[in-house]
């Protein structure tokens, strides 16, 4: 069980958070313009990376804010956290 450094509350136990899957999948602004394939891509297709993954977490038993986490899915090591709308920290 990891510790997540909520950008709003600080370090808290993983059990306070909910995972929200891959980050930076932007909901299309004009869904009706998309082909079925493109829509399916948004809806279901995932990188599901083994290694450094950008993902969303929600501090659901805390401030209830969504934010982004950079985590290595091969060892669960968290490299960075950053708020929604912010650019991922480089390096």
């Amino acid at each position: 069980m990891f510790i997540i450094n909520c950008p709003f509350c600080g370090e808290r136990d993983q059990s306070e958070f909910s995972a929200g899957g891959e980050a930076h999948i932007v909901r299309p602004k004009q869904p009706t313009e998309l082909t079925d394939d493109e829509w399916a891509d948004f809806l279901f297709m995932r990188k599901n990376i083994k290694g450094i993954q950008f993902e969303r977490w929600n501090h659901s038993h805390g401030c209830r804010k969504w934010f982004n986490v950079i985590r290595d899915t091969s060892n669960d090591k968290i490299h960075a956290v950053y708020k929604m709308g912010e650019k991922p920290p480089s390096n």
Partner: peptide, 13 residues
């Protein structure tokens, strides 16, 4: 509630 908060914070801030 979680779903609405998700959309509000992440898609429609």
């Amino acid at each position: 509630l979680s779903k609405l908060e998700d959309y509000l914070q992440t898609e429609w801030p």
